[in-house]
């Protein structure tokens, strides 16, 4: 295999991993802190994509739509947490069902809004540029760079700010956080809104790559779930590494075996990893 082709594959892996990182960062932090899997996470991604579509339709432009998406979806996440999720923190199975139901309502509402069709949303800028003999999609490069910026900003927020310390303390020991004067209910709500905003941003960034259709979020939900489990719950780095691992498998394997078999292999490898590393790649003991 020649160098440009290898570089192309490496970039595809990086690009796919970046998308997965954006998708799982919010999901991972919610799972780690609240102990629940938000099955509406995929639909929050869809809502981000739909926000960009609506912004484009009403003439605000795709660029402004991408800025608005995390704000709109963050607010929706806050509403979801306050009205539904907070009642189920001690009942994770009920939380799964409740968020699944909410996700279905969002998905079907979007399907109705799209009249069952799929819509193309064009990226604010498109085309390719060349590095030597390797041609890279400008939008995919933008996604990679934005992902790096989001990871860095999230890390700094968690490590260097008062709110971040409250979040980490609550994540570590919610009962003791309350005994230290931290209003954990508010921390949960803000964290859920933040995780939702990241999902919304992910949806806004990926919609130019995949088009907008009602099942867009579902497509990524299973892989995101897998990435969180592979990476490990309870740390900031875990879901990122998990997304990298799943992205690597999903990006490389189709070049080696038939795409259908590659998809199955990713799941087999992930399940094997979870069997032998049940706490994930990063375990905070």
């Amino acid at each position: 295999m020649d160098v440009p082709r290898l570089a192309g594959i490496a970039f595809d892996v990086l690009s796919l991993s970046s998308i997965l990182v954006l998708l799982v960062l919010g999901m991972g932090i919610i799972v780690s802190m609240m102990g629940i899997f938000n099955l509406a996470h995929g639909e929050l991604v869809l809502l981000g994509a739909f926000t960009v579509y609506l912004a484009h339709k009403v003439g605000l432009g795709v660029g402004l739509g991408i800025v608005l998406a995390p704000i709109v979806v963050g607010a929706a996440g806050l509403l979801l947490e306050r009205s539904v999720v907070r009642h189920f923190y001690s009942r994770p199975i009920s939380a799964l069902l409740a968020t699944w139901a909410v996700g279905m309502m969002i998905r079907e509402s979007v399907r109705a809004g799209l009249h069952g069709r799929s819509e193309v949303v064009v990226a604010p800028f498109s085309g390719t540029f060349a590095i030597g003999n390797v041609y890279l999609s400008q939008w995919r490069v933008a996604i990679v760079l934005l992902t790096v910026a989001v990871i860095a900003a999230s890390y700094l927020l968690l490590q260097r700010t008062r709110v971040g310390l409250q979040v980490r303390a609550t994540l570590d020991n919610a009962s003791l956080a309350r005994a230290s004067g931290i209003a954990t209910g508010r921390v949960y709500a803000l964290t859920f809104a933040f995780g939702s905003a990241l999902a919304g941003l992910a949806g806004a960034l990926i919609v130019p790559l995949f088009a907008l259709y009602a099942d867009l979020g579902v497509t990524f939900l299973v892989r995101s779930f897998l990435a969180v489990m592979v990476g490990g719950v309870g740390s900031f780095e875990g879901p990122i590494l998990g997304a990298g691992a799943v992205g690597l498998g999903s990006g490389v394997l189709p070049w080696v075996v038939a795409p259908v078999l590659a998809d199955a292999l990713v799941f087999v490898i992930a399940i094997a990893l979870m069997r032998f590393m049940p706490n994930g790649l990063v375990h905070r003991g």
């Binding site: 980490r168 570590d172 020991n173 009962s175 956080a177 230290s180 004067g181 931290i182």
Partner: peptide, 25 residues
């Protein structure tokens, strides 16, 4: 309040534990 069990934030540093305590002041 100092609980009997798990009375510190194990994943945080000593300085961070103390900073969390000061938040409730």
């Amino acid at each position: 309040y100092v609980p009997q069990d798990q009375a510190v934030f194990g994943g945080l540093t000593v300085a961070e534990n103390l900073r969390v305590g000061a938040m409730g002041a």
